[in-house]
Design a protein around this nucleic acid. Sequence first.
DNA 1: TGATATTAAGGAATTGTTTCTTTAATCAAA
DNA 2: TTTGATTAAAGAAACAATTCCTTAATATCA
Lengths: 225, 225
Amino acid sequence: MGEENVKKKNALVPEPALRRMPCYLAYLKLEHRKGSQYVSSTLIARDNGVDPTQVTKDLSYTGISGKTRVGYEVEPLIDALEDFLGFRVMDEAYLFGAGSLGTALLHDHGLVQYGLKIVGAFDVNPLVIGHSIGGISIAHIDEFVKNKDHGIKIGILTTPVANAREVANMMVANGIKAIWNFTPVRITSPEGVVVQNTSLYAHLAVMFNRLNAAGSDDSVAPAKK
Amino acid sequence: MGEENVKKKNALVPEPALRRMPCYLAYLKLEHRKGSQYVSSTLIARDNGVDPTQVTKDLSYTGISGKTRVGYEVEPLIDALEDFLGFRVMDEAYLFGAGSLGTALLHDHGLVQYGLKIVGAFDVNPLVIGHSIGGISIAHIDEFVKNKDHGIKIGILTTPVANAREVANMMVANGIKAIWNFTPVRITSPEGVVVQNTSLYAHLAVMFNRLNAAGSDDSVAPAKK
DNA sequence: TGATATTAAGGAATTGTTTCTTTAATCAAA
DNA sequence: TTTGATTAAAGAAACAATTCCTTAATATCA
Ligand SMILES: NC(=O)c1ccc[n+]([C@@H]2O[C@H](COP(=O)([O-])OP(=O)(O)OC[C@H]3O[C@@H](n4cnc5c(N)ncnc54)[C@H](O)[C@@H]3O)[C@@H](O)[C@H]2O)c1
Ligand SMILES: NC(=O)c1ccc[n+]([C@@H]2O[C@H](COP(=O)([O-])OP(=O)(O)OC[C@H]3O[C@@H](n4cnc5c(N)ncnc54)[C@H](O)[C@@H]3O)[C@@H](O)[C@H]2O)c1
């Protein structure tokens, strides 16, 4: 079965589905290491606390299909997921704001496995400029503006809240097409530019709320049954 | 102010709404510093790229209400949001896995402003045990298990994927009530325990997908109009 | 003082996502 | 070969979230 495979890959995959996929991937890699050749959606669902039909729906976006009564072949599924999620082509990125969070990301070697390689970092603080963190040297942000032909499409935003918007605009003005925004400031995407907001504080807020709800109200059901 | 304040705080606030609130908060703090006394939902909406009615709906969960034709009083709204989000009571947390990501979080001084204080860290690597990162000393994980009366409810999970589940179970077995999970492994919440999954790779996946969709398909609309 | 425009808030309609149900396929065992 | 159990996949229904629409209030300005 293959010809009728719909090509709506980039039509409009639901964001919740996209967010679940890396979790399936991590799970499948663990199963692969354990020696599993096939994994059924039922099993994936049970081990990850989601609905079995949701697993199949999510996985169907990758274009791969499972075998009835057997499940999915682990290796091709890992390949398909990594392919679909864009983890196999290495995207290069610049980082803006080499403070505590930025330093952490520069130190991280995990991101490369997921298709992101930080190839440069910029700051305005003389104390960090010229130094090298995790093998990436920090330059003054003017150096970024000067070099128009960098060819880098992705910018990671980890500056203080106060100038996040300003730096974001500057990034866009100099060719950045996707902003991975770690500040709690919601960047308004300037036309055709992708903004991915990743505020840790947002997650903190959700966690506190659920924790308080669980403690003070007996009738509160857990997020997933 | 207070008596008429509805007590349905922990009824069931939608997660998307909770996630937007810290962003409003950051915005309001900036406005406050600029000297604004009142801010309307219209303005918040425009500056943050969301729908005005969504702003009012989101803010209504805090119990505060705005003035017709004027908007919201900035200071009380900041207070109400911080209160509602649990950023004003300081919660103490332990961190498990002082690797590159864990180190970053230990270095972070921003979290304290949002009500989270890391008061201890555990690892199994002899190279890091005994050392101090960001003022927090790293102990062997056995020390955590030994001390049952820690009184800490929140655990931050930043171990490798391979033993994330195992460490999570151990956390729960020793009194942890909320797990802030940074690994891509989806932890199945063991009954009454809150799990907040914060996988950076999930966000990366969404960003790559949107970036590729924007590049290869002309008809794709931006996430928000 | 009165008209007008702006705003918050509540409810209705829409949209998107998840869950449920059914169907078809096929592996394993009798 | 036949039966039964398990699974993926596709469509329907249910649910949740967002957007739209209406109403009521009130500052501003004529
Ligand atoms: N630290 C965390 O764990 C954490 C967690 C969640 C969110 N955040 C957010 O991430 C952002 C960064 O946090 P942080 O703790 O790393 O702050 P930080 O102050 O340690 O780092 C900010 C860095 O940005 C640099 N910078 C300032 N202006 C700049 C400019 N115009 N161009 C380039 N660089 C500039 C500063 O010199 C500094 O090195 C903040 O918005 C914070 O709210 C941080
Ligand atoms: N580094 C990043 O930027 C990044 C980004 C996204 C997600 N993650 C995820 O976060 C997790 C940690 O990433 P990392 O890059 O910090 O890895 P890392 O290997 O640098 O750190 C993991 C740490 O956990 C410790 N550890 C191992 N087993 C342990 C146990 N049983 N109990 C306590 N500690 C134990 C290790 O000694 C090590 O210090 C991984 O699951 C990774 O996928 C990391």
